[in-house]
Each structure stands twice: as C-alpha cells, then as structure tokens.
Simulated assay, not measured.
Amino acid sequence: MAEEIIVAGWMDYEAGDRGTMLAALVELGRRTREEEPGCLDYAMTADPTDERRIRVYEHWTSRQALDEHFTTEHIKDFRTAVAGLTRVGVRLTAHTIAESRPMR
C-alpha cells in the first residue's frame, strides 16, 4: 500500500497579484479534484491576515500521484495563466503520512 502525502505551507505574491493567482488556483483545484483520482483534497486559500499570502493544502494517495500531477494538461494551462505573476516567497513541505485517525 502506498503511503499518502500531504503538501502544506504557503506562497506569497505581490499584493496586486494574489487575487489573480487565487482565481487561477480555483480552476486548477477544480480540475485536479475532478480529473486526478490520486488527489484526495486540494485547497489554496487567501490568508486573512496577510494580503500577499496563499495557504496551501494538498492530500494525495501516493508520491506517484503527486508526481503525475505535475505532468497534467491543467498544470500546463495553469502555468501559462500565471506566467506574469510575481511570487516573493514560498515554503511548501511534502509530508509522508505515518498514521491517520479521526479527531473528535
């Protein structure tokens, strides 16, 4: 059984670019969730306390599913759509899940 992967962190963009990036991420997230069976969750959200920051959360069935994500047509479309935007910082980390349990 493959180990699940969680990608979490943040990306900072010039304040004027964040809205455009978020709009592109909404479409990317929709297509990723619909077209990639290895994607369990994919959410990019605006940080309410920092006008530049986008919070990142992705949940994948395996490392292979995550690697394949970067080869899809919708990733290529996304990269074209955001080519002129300025990212000023990033911290993303991929975590291999050792154990999961429901929280109450």
Rank of each mutant, 00 (worst) to 15 (best):
E35M: 08
E14C: 04
I54S: 02
C39W: 04
E99R: 10
D47C: 09
H69M: 09
H69D: 06
Y42M: 04
T86Q: 12
Y13R: 01
E99G: 03
I6M: 04
A23S: 15
G84Y: 01
A24Y: 02
M11K: 06
D77P: 00
P48T: 12
T71S: 10
T72L: 09
A46D: 14
D50Y: 07
T80Q: 13
A83L: 06
D47Q: 08
E3K: 11
M44K: 02
F78T: 07
S62V: 12
T45L: 11
W60H: 07
R55E: 13
V26S: 03
D50I: 14
E68Y: 00
E4N: 03
E14F: 01
V56T: 15
D17N: 10
G16H: 03
E99M: 14
M21R: 11
E73V: 12
A98C: 10
D17P: 01
P48E: 14
H74D: 12
L40M: 14
E35T: 04
R18I: 12
T86N: 14
Y13Q: 08
T20N: 05
E14V: 12
V7S: 09
D77F: 00
R104A: 11
R104D: 08
T20P: 00
T32D: 05
C39Y: 00
A2Q: 13
A2D: 14
G29Q: 01
E35I: 00
A2K: 10
M1H: 03
M1F: 01
T49V: 08
A8G: 12
A2E: 14
I97R: 02
D41R: 06
R79Y: 04
T32C: 10
S62E: 06
T45Q: 06
E34F: 02
R55P: 00
G84N: 10
T61V: 07
I54T: 11
T71I: 04
E3V: 02
L25A: 07
E4Y: 00
R18T: 14
R63Q: 15
H95N: 12
L25T: 05
L66I: 07
M1D: 05
S62M: 04
R101V: 12
T93M: 04
H95T: 06
A24S: 15
Q64Y: 07
V56C: 12
F78V: 06
I97G: 02
V7R: 05
E36P: 05
T86H: 10
R31G: 04
H59C: 06
A94T: 05
E27W: 00
L28M: 13
P37H: 10
E36R: 04
K76D: 11
F78C: 03
P37W: 03
M103Y: 05
E27H: 06
E34Q: 14
M44R: 10
E4R: 05
S62Q: 09
R31P: 02
F78Q: 07
R63F: 02
R104L: 08
A24D: 03
E99Q: 13
L40T: 06
L40I: 15
I97A: 04
R18D: 07
Y57I: 10
R31A: 11
T86V: 13
R55A: 13
L22M: 13
G89A: 15
A8E: 06
W60N: 03
R55Q: 14
W10I: 00
V56A: 09
I5V: 15
